[in-house]
Design a protein around this nucleic acid. Structure first.
Length: 503
RNA sequence: GGCGCUAUCGUCUAGGGGUUAGGACGGAAGAUUCUCAAUCUUCAAACCCGGGUUCGAUUCCCGGUAGCGCUACCA
């Protein structure tokens, strides 16, 4: 029975790298009919925050993939201690009475390999018991085999056979001096107990895995058998450095993508293509296609760059810092990988109009505009090929939401190879035509084209002044459809204003 | 410092002892349309370096270099 788990530690928001790990786990489970477990690895009491837990769930809920079982590591301490005790009883671990901070100082001072705090490993059991009984605090450390030329090995599904000399592995801690389990112990104990069959996680754990193999072997008696390991290449910044919360802030947070108007399916699609390939020419893939295509063989070994512009990020940071409120508009398009943007546009275009309209509506309303659902439904087909992010609806369809239009430069009304007089002519004639013509695409098309011909203008020279009069700018959706949605009254008022503006 | 991992266009990647080294994004040019977008066509753009093995290496092996990770009583 295949069981995978996603085990984030609640010490910050949901990181894009974590999101990808979650997605790969989920895909693997769904592809193989397995079980997806969500486990909060919250053994670091100092750094865990409730806000972080909420943020992670927010992100995961947005992804909308779901999971089958849920656990909290902090509620399983008894199990962890039990496993630790078992390992200790097998003499695979020993008590280290060295005060925590002293050990740190010694290690960081000399820039050489540290394996264990001197003296503690050799402490006799009697001595150890006596000091423990006396209430002296201690950490429990794994007793890694020394001087035997022993090798720890495991097979990684992505990185292949891995081997490391036991002499190069330090006596890592299992239990802290306050009795809390460390990540290594809690994670392995839970993986055994939850019968996790495949551990799919970031490559930053590849080196740690040697320790985990040691723990799994030490737990063998308790029914543990090492799961299969699957390490994923890391997601890094354009300069190759790892994505950091401090340096790259918003680009590493899943909620930034959500707030900017990414579709969860597109975001997932994008993340999947970072470090994994379907091995064919597909890029735009639906959730189901991803499930069907997913396999461990498609996972790459080299780190993948999330190609955002750091400069855009800095600009947004300095501009946005004044207004502390989470303002998604503060993050320019360059904040996101061009491929993510393109994929999002692809997914947007693939959405049925009514569905897209329903997603756009709340964004428009939250921006303070009052738009009826029916009107939004009429606007949607006009902009759906023109937006990359859902939030772009605000800039692509702005003129549908406000009335009157904000000020614009009269020079904008001048058509190609024309002058203000031509604009004047087109608008005046347009006003007459628009006052009489039926507001349907074909009727407007026919009437306006006819008028252009009569005036000796190219169609574009006739349309452009009207477009600017009605939209307030040159680049906008197709004219006739736009006029139909706007309606005769608004259209005429705006054309009239343009004529007045020219003087 | 020690140990581990990695290395194909700017980015994501396919490929693999003999290929015009393929695709996608992005970029450039063009077509099309009432502008923009979408769409279509075309173009530029890559096998880290050095040794081996081989008739032949981008591919296999070794070394170097670079990057990343681990080296916490963080996860």
């Amino acid at each position: 029975m295949l069981r995978v788990r996603f085990a984030p530690s609640p010490t910050g928001f949901l990181h894009v790298g974590s999101a990808r790990t979650f997605i790969f786990n989920w895909l693997y489970a769904r592809h193989n009919g397995g079980t997806m477990v969500l486990r909060l690895d919250d053994t670091d009491v100092e750094r865990n925050t409730e806000a972080s837990v909420n943020s992670i769930f927010d992100g995961l809920r947005w992804l909308d993939l779901g999971w089958d079982e849920e656990y909290k590591q902090s509620e399983r301490l008894a199990l962890h201690r039990e496993i630790a005790e078992a390992i200790f009883q097998k003499d695979l671990a020993y008590r280290d009475f060295t005060p925590a901070h002293v050990g740190d100082a010694e290690k960081s001072g000399a820039n050489q390999t540290w394996l264990f705090n001197p003296g503690m490993r050799e402490l006799s059991r009697a001595e150890s018991d006596r000091r423990a009984a006396a209430g002296e605090p201690f950490a429990l450390r794994f007793r890694v085999p020394r001087g035997l030329g022993a090798e720890v090995r495991f097979a990684d599904a992505v990185y292949g056979e891995q081997a490391k000399a036991a002499d190069d592995i330090e006596d890592f801690a299992l239990l802290r001096s306050d009795g809390m389990p460390t990540y290594h112990l809690a994670s392995c104990a839970d993986d055994v107990d939850l019968k996790i069959s495949d551990i799919i996680r970031g490559q930053d754990h590849l080196s740690n895995t040697f320790k985990h193999v040691l723990i799994f072997e030490g737990t063998q008696g308790a029914g543990g058998r090492a799961p299969q390991f699957v390490h994923l290449p890391l997601l890094v910044a354009p300069d190759g450095s790892k994505l950091s919360k401090r340096r790259h802030g918003p680009v590493v947070s899943v909620t930034t993508y959500r707030d900017a108007g990414f579709l969860a399916a597109a975001f997932m699609n994008f993340l999947c293509l970072l470090g994994w390939s379907p091995k064919d020419d597909r890029t735009h893939m639906t959730r189901q296609e991803l499930i069907d295509a997913f396999s461990l063989e498609g996972i790459n070994r080299a780190n993948a760059v999330v190609n955002f512009k750091e400069t855009a990020l800095e600009a947004a940071a300095s501009a946005g810092s004044a207004t502390s409120a989470a303002n998604s508009q503060a993050y320019p398009e360059e904040t996101f990988d061009p491929k993510a943007l393109w994929l999002n546009a692809e997914h947007i275009r693939a959405l049925p109009v009514d569905e897209l309209s329903a997603r756009l509506l709340p964004i428009v309303q939250q921006a303070g505009f009052e738009v009826a659902p029916e009107k939004m439904l009429a606007i949607t087909p006009l902009i759906r090929e023109r937006i990359k992010l859902l939030r772009d609806v605000l800039t692509a369809a702005d003129f549908f939401f406000v009335d009157p239009l904000p000020a614009y430069d009269s020079a904008e009304l001048i058509p190609q190879k024309g002058d203000m007089a031509m604009a004047q002519k087109a608008l005046t004639r347009g006003r007459g035509v628009l006052a009489q013509t039926e507001f349907t695409h074909d009727a407007l098309d026919h009437a306006l084209r006819g008028a252009a011909q009569e005036l000796g203008l190219k169609a574009g020279q006739m349309f452009q002044p009207i477009r600017v009069a009605v939209c307030g700018r040159k680049n906008a959706p197709p004219l006739f459809e736009t006029l139909v949605v706007l309606g005769r009254q608004t259209t005429l008022a705006r054309v009239e204003r343009a004529i007045q503006q020219i003087g």
